[in-house]
Design a protein around this nucleic acid. Structure first.
Lengths: 299, 299
DNA sequence: TTCATTTTATACCGACAGTCCAATCATTGC
DNA sequence: GCAATGATTGGACTGTCGGTATAAAATGAA
């Protein structure tokens, strides 16, 4: 993604969260980003598309962090809680929730479809994580449980927003997860379910898969941008990652462990955003090649 | 409320649900209702206000039906389920949910405030009903449980809408209510809660309370409009209701029982909508006089 | 009949998303 | 250094919409 385009996105995001989507005109964005109307419509075909790009970016960013956080530790409800937390934090920092709301109305069919995919991908993630974390016996109920959990959580958040309550997220999340457990046991006990497993994951991905070789290239080129004292370290990482990426069956766990530290090398450098964007594509490729069907993950 | 204004509201509602709020222009409404722009802005100060009027109307209508359904039967989870069902049905028939979404964005501060009140009133209703239905021991957890229940339900509905699933409402509701029970037991067992009781009900009502005597008058005048063969029956009802209304402490249960059949007399007559509107005010007055604090109900 | 209110019809305003295009700038191959 | 190609600019322009303004017409009560 073009650097300039990134800049425009950043400006637009800034304005959207300051003034809200509806109250931000395209002219505002042009002024803030210092570009002309023609350029804007070169990048995005509409204001809506610009909004979608912003949301998608943040969404994928949180997906990256979720993957990184899972690396190393033994899996369990706490990890799942942290993964949920990540998205909440990102949502708050970037104030995404109002933007989601903005999408819901707006009548635009494309936007609604986009939202639907995001929504389903989150449910699919939740469903598969529930099975991973709580065990295979939860599979028949995981879809229902995912919906219930997601609903409880978002309702709590919305309520907190309405009344300006400053509950910290971890408290809410663990509260919800404890309810989730008891619900799962209850569902199993009465063998009750409404939504069959796997109902969410028939989504098509939002973007076409990036090219493998090109992505592998990108990693190496990325490492070259590091300051001298880190470059050798970075090149080690990037060499390994690009090999692994191009291999027949990338070793998911290894990549998980290495990708996080590698990306973190770029924190604070001018290439942090380029690093994030590259790693997004890496994850996409990796998930695809390591068999997306077996492990439905984000996007 | 003016008959003509009602007509405009009906036309607007029709268009909103056919084409969505965003895709309905004021001009469309004018054409559909056969009025001029000036008249429209006599009735509503803006398109938003028109939307609010529509939602409020439906909302109160379902509140009336909820009250009516509670009459007679012994209270319990089934009654609560039916009461929830009523709102869902009305929401679906009148396709309100997209209109709610429309409100969420739109940036308009007044609309958001309106939505917030509706939301809180629903939570307050749920909280108080939970205590009534499941017992006093649930009080400390009822607020949390209300949020969780509302969240689970709306998430299920949203999901059904997204995937065009035709689960019937009763199945979903009883599914949710069973979860609610087990959650309540769990919360009590661990003595866990986040939101203290009564947090929702500090809402101000959306409309000023109607005048008592005037409302009592209205009931009697209303009964006069009935066709000959029903008038005597109607007058009996209306006489009782207006007395009860004006009394120091209206007997809530009695009124509950009588109000429904009385209103139903007008079904199919040209005054059905006038009857509904009158009964809305009756309920408001009654709830106020029978001690709203003790029994926080709708609005 | 008179007088006040409501309704109509229409012109108008400003804001906005989105289109179009000719002029300009930057990059790259030669 | 030059030419060609493509990105960028800036602004004029269109059409839509929500909302205002107002003069004329209709309605209705005294």
């Amino acid at each position: 993604m073009n650097e300039r385009k990134q800049h425009v996105l950043a400006a637009a995001r800034q304005l959207f969260l300051e003034n809200g989507f509806a109250h931000t005109s395209i002219q505002n964005i042009l002024d803030e980003a210092g570009i002309s109307k023609g350029t804007f419509y070169n990048y995005f075909s509409s204001k809506n598309e610009c909004l979608m790009a912003i949301i998608q970016q943040s969404w994928e960013e949180s997906a990256i962090l979720r993957n990184e956080i899972a690396a190393g530790k033994p899996d369990g409800p706490e990890v799942m809680g942290e993964q949920i937390l990540i998205r909440l934090r990102l949502n708050r920092e970037q104030n995404l929730l109002p933007l989601f709301d903005a999408i819901l109305s707006s009548g635009d069919e494309e936007l609604r479809g986009f939202m639907k995919e995001i929504h389903l991908s989150e449910l699919a993630w939740s469903e598969s994580r529930i099975v991973e974390v709580y065990g295979e016996w939860t599979r028949p109920f995981a879809a229902d449980a995912a919906i219930l959990q997601f609903g409880m959580l978002s309702q709590f958040l919305r309520f907190s927003a309405i009344l300006d309550i400053k509950e910290d997220f971890p408290v809410i999340i663990s509260f919800i997860l404890r309810r989730l457990e008891v619900i799962l046991r209850d569902l199993a006990e009465h063998n009750e379910f409404l939504i069959p497993p796997g109902r969410f994951s028939n989504t098509v991905s939002l973007l076409p898969l990036p090219d493998v070789d090109e992505t592998a290239d990108r990693i190496v080129r990325l490492a070259d941008l590091l300051p001298d004292e880190q470059r050798s370290k970075g090149l080690e990482y990037s060499g390994f990652l690009s090999e692994e990426l191009a291999s027949e069956r990338p070793r998911l766990q290894l990549i998980r462990t290495v990708a996080g530290p590698f990306r973190k090398l770029f924190d604070g450098t001018p290439h942090a955003s380029e690093a994030r964007s590259t790693m997004r594509d890496v994850w996409r490729v990796v998930r695809d090649r390591s068999g997306a069907a077996e492990k439905p993950d984000e996007f």
